[in-house]
Design a protein around this nucleic acid. Structure first.
Lengths: 171, 171
DNA sequence: TATTGTTATACTCTATAACTATA
DNA sequence: TATAGTTATAGAGTATAACAATA
């Protein structure tokens, strides 16, 4: 994202050339106005930044936030099928297929036909999947979340997390 | 979004049929585990909820959050061109073209060739654009933001907004 | 030469309908 | 009949290259 930094980048083009003897001011950054009071606006901007940083921190392992969340969930919930994992993450089942294909082709997890219900695929992390997840957790904790903690302070970070969870749950 | 609500929807299928005399328990909701401590996860979830509610509240005017932000910015910053508006909102110039086409075709704003620099288009709200923006602001304030205020309380809402802005600015 | 608006294009996300195999 | 996984597909959103007009 180019984000708010781009505001300062706005070039002092016209006026500077038209009145070269004039003041060296102008080319003012745009006014956000009511936008800075819109919760959704800052929410979106912050989310993009955080995801961007997540990708950077976990780049050595080539995992997206969504892939990381799948690995975490498989580790915590062995024996579940695709529908259960996808639903929990808010991923639609059709879209989860390609995502699993990707993870499985990298030998991070496997689909196993359930013996109870031969329609469903039980999902399991592979040994490599567990190893990658462990490394990813460390990168996320030590680089990504650590930076957020530094920026906000532990108490604020906890308060923020709680409010976001409240919105996701009850709004 | 189906979100966390879908967790409770997980059906008590197999076990309930296999051991009908057994306990009426099981079909437990999945464990989120470390996911509930991941800021980015709650951030994304909350953002989806908030945008979803925004769309619902502003549905009578058929405005997306992005379109609303453009109208707000045009109102506050008359005389700016496409590049300036797009940059401020983090929209890439090529993608801004179709967006403006949509707003202009609904007579909410107009492009005017600048006399200073005939390459650039000055953007202006039309009277209808101003009227729609005014109505949208009311819907957002009275329905959308009011609900968030109710859920979090004014002080928490303000703290949340500030932290999100901090992340968007400095992270 | 550089910049504004634009076109074309591609890739990711998300969303829905419909198929198959199982139940 | 209904459900799990899948395919196909369509629509947003986002990203880059390149062109015409203008500076």
């Amino acid at each position: 994202m180019t984000v708010s930094k781009t505001a300062d980048v706005a070039k002092p083009s016209r006026a500077a050339r038209k009145e070269p003897a004039e003041v060296a001011v102008e080319a003012a950054a745009l006014q956000l106005g009511e936008l800075s009071e819109l919760l959704g606006y800052s929410l979106k901007r912050a989310q993009l930044r955080v995801f961007e940083d997540f990708l950077r921190c976990v780049a050595p392992l080539q995992l997206t936030p969504a892939q990381f969340s799948v690995l975490l969930l498989l580790d915590r919930n062995p024996g579940r099928n695709q529908t259960e994992i996808a639903n929990t993450l808010g991923i639609l089942r059709p879209n989860f297929v390609a995502m699993l294909d990707g993870l499985e082709s990298r030998d991070l997890c496997t689909r196993i036909r359930s013996t109870n219900d031969r329609r469903s695929h039980i999902l399991m992390l592979t040994d490599k999947g567990r190893a990658v997840l462990a490394r990813a957790k460390k990168l996320v904790a030590n680089k990504h979340e650590a930076r957020l903690n530094e920026l906000l302070g532990p108490a604020n970070r906890a308060a923020l997390l709680e409010m976001l969870a409240t919105i996701a749950r009850e709004f």
